[in-house]
């Protein structure tokens, strides 16, 4: 399981996360709701080893995620599909995916198998596999980004705002793909502003505001909570 204890992250004098406590059980989809600047991406960057915390700990199945070496986090089963996708725009879709499996470079047979699964999950990518990733539509690029993270064969998938800037129909496709990935046993931590779509597939959720968790509960709790309804569901 993912266990976050008193995690504090600072950028200079600004504290982005205040002693956060959060856990995700194996097999869950947990959604993290929050506005821009609430600290969602900071949390994700920290969990991927890109940002070192000022205090506290984050572990996945007991392995520390805060050593400051992202490649170790990927190798221990935590992969991120980041906000803004961060693809390699001039490389082909397939090369992007193969690089996603970089930590498994000594197992080409396994990578070939994962590549098959990625194309099964997102058949739209098959005919685009030799096209530069940057030439694809926003929705397809998001698919490449998710597939690239899955190529690392993660046990925990961190998904940062996958619906950002996508048409409603594409959002639906992306979220149903996330649900299918979860059904194969991958734990998912999902940061979203699109609360309705995210809550519809999540088991539990947290609300992050100004670097602090202000609310937590099951899907039902959050869906019916007045504060969530007014702030994130627009009801």
């Amino acid at each position: 399981m993912l266990e976050i204890r008193d995690l504090t992250v600072r950028y200079g004098a600004f504290t982005a996360l205040h002693a956060l406590n959060l856990s995700v059980q194996r097999g869950e989809i947990v959604v993290l709701l929050g506005a821009n600047g609430a600290g969602k991406s900071t949390l994700f960057r920290t969990l991927s080893g890109l940002q070192r915390p000022a205090g506290g700990s984050a572990t996945w199945n007991g392995t520390s995620l805060t050593t400051g070496r992202p490649e170790l986090n990927v190798a221990s089963g935590v992969a991120q599909c980041p906000e803004g996708r961060l693809l390699f725009p001039e490389l082909s879709v397939e090369k992007n995916l193969r690089l996603g499996a970089f930590v498994h470079r000594r197992d080409p047979a396994g990578t070939a198998r994962e590549l098959e699964r990625a194309y099964d999950l997102f058949p739209a990518l098959i005919e685009k596999r030799h096209a530069p990733a940057g030439s694809l539509s926003g929705g397809q690029q998001q698919m490449v980004a998710i597939a690239r993270a899955l190529m690392a064969r993660p046990q925990l998938l961190l998904l940062d705002e996958p619906s950002l800037g996508l048409a409603p129909l594409v959002v639906e496709q992306v979220f149903s793909a996330v649900q299918r990935v979860n059904e194969t046993g991958v734990t998912v931590l999902l940061a979203e502003q699109n609360a309705f779509a995210a809550l519809s597939i999540a088991h539990r959720g947290y609300v992050l505001e100004g670097g602090r968790l202000t609310l937590e509960g099951t899907q039902q709790d959050l869906m019916t909570d007045d504060r969530v309804r007014s702030a994130y569901l627009g009801v």
Binding site: F88, L99, G100, A152
Partner: peptide, 20 residues
């Protein structure tokens, strides 16, 4: 693949770190 890591890093450094 090693050559691809050079191109990947020049196109998106953060993305390269995220794939390990």
């Amino acid at each position: 693949l090693t050559g691809a890591t050079i191109e990947a890093m020049s196109q998106n450094r953060e993305g390269a770190r995220l794939v390990g």
